[in-house]
């Protein structure tokens, strides 16, 4: 009798069907997004060109190839990476702090990076300089948060409070940079950058920005079952036999690195880190065995879709943060009301 009760599938893992859906959905979305634009390229040609490139031949006309490979491909790659990275770091921070309201910016990373980028633009740096400056400031912000909030006997909540303080400090610094910036040339650039955009994407930008995100995704994906220990109370986590301090440090490091890199490449893209992990929790439960792959995949899909809308629905490109919120908020409310929400 006991044998009939036993299930074969490990609890909390994705079913084969869901795995297939997540993979196919990501690939299909990217493929369709590559074909859509003011200059349309049929999906079949896009697929043909990609397969051709694997064999070292180009099947498209030179104009099509230019649009596909030099303009759209880096942008779609960036959208995939940034969506996956922001979603996963949001997930990591929510579990780490056992707080459903945690976002990639909880420790002040995004505010720090924004300040770095704004300052870089103010000082007239070239694009790569702005990007590196943004990462550096993001890391600095998290270090300051740690100095302010961590210490023996202090809980993680102190760290969250310190993060809010450091975050608002850097937000104020961003405002200050905007205040002193030249209103004709610099201010629009800074403002536009802060609202987020993926249109600056090029392979060079990806060369610096992609590796940290990929490393973060790989490390957290490998640790995915271990991440289940994070939301437990301190004594439970410690008595599980897991090196909880090391696990927390690695998680914070990876999530910070991914967020700083994303913000450096495409500005402040809000909502992804909050919205996507929540949707995944409503659908798949709280086990990171399924949450990590689902968040990565759906985060990537979401940002590709939103970015495609941002660059196609109007003649002038819409800042991406505006769209993530306009699409994200109602969708999220709808889901929350239908599923009854979730608890961490």
């Amino acid at each position: 009798m006991t044998d009939t009760v036993r299930r074969i599938r490990m609890p909390g893992t994705l079913s084969i069907g869901w795995k297939a859906v997540l993979i196919v959905l990501s690939l299909a979305t990217a493929l369709i997004a590559l074909s859509i634009g003011r200059y349309a390229i049929p999906v079949r040609d896009v697929a043909g060109s990609i397969l051709g490139h694997l064999r070292g031949v180009e099947v498209l006309s030179s104009k099509d190839a230019l649009v596909l490979w030099n303009i759209r491909m880096p942008r779609i790659l960036l959208a995939l990476l940034a969506g996956a990275g922001l979603s996963l770091s949001g997930l990591a921070f929510q579990s780490l702090f056992a707080n459903p309201l945690a976002t990639p910016d909880t420790l002040g990373v995004a505010s720090g990076s924004s300040f770095g980028a704004a300052l870089g633009l103010l000082l007239g740096f070239r694009w790569i300089g702005v990007q590196l400056f943004a990462v550096a400031m993001g890391m600095l912000a998290v270090c300051l948060t740690f100095l302010a909030g961590s210490g023996r006997g202090r809980g993680l909540n102190t760290l969250v409070l310190a993060g809010i303080m450091i975050g608002s400090l850097f937000s104020a610094l961003v405002s200050f940079v905007k205040f002193v910036a030249d209103a004709e040339s610099q201010l629009p650039a800074i403002t536009y950058w802060l609202m987020g955009s993926l249109d600056v994407a090029g392979y060079k930008s990806l060369l610096y920005g992609a590796p940290p995100i990929l490393v973060g995704i790989i490390v957290l994906a490998l640790l995915r079952w271990r991440l289940n220990v994070l939301p437990l109370s301190d004594d439970e986590a410690a008595s599980s036999g897991v090196r909880i301090r090391t696990l927390r440090t690695i998680t914070i490091l990876m999530a910070t690195m991914m967020t700083a890199s994303c913000v450096a490449m495409c500005g402040q893209v809000g909502w992804v880190g909050l919205l996507i992990p929540h949707i995944c929790r409503m659908k798949f439960g709280n086990n990171h065995l399924s949450l990590v792959p689902a968040s990565v995949s759906l985060g990537a899909v979401f940002l590709v879709v939103v970015d495609t809308l941002a660059r196609t629905i109007t003649a002038q490109e819409i800042p991406i943060s505006v769209l993530t919120a306009i699409i994200g908020a109602p969708f999220f409310i709808l889901l929350m009301r239908r599923s009854g929400g979730w608890q961490l």
């Binding site: 609890p11 939301p231 109370s233 439960g285 979730w342 961490l344």
Partner: peptide, 11 residues
Amino acid sequence: KTAAAAYTVEE
């Protein structure tokens, strides 16, 4: 009372 993370009992 300090231990109720929202995992299933099996998890």
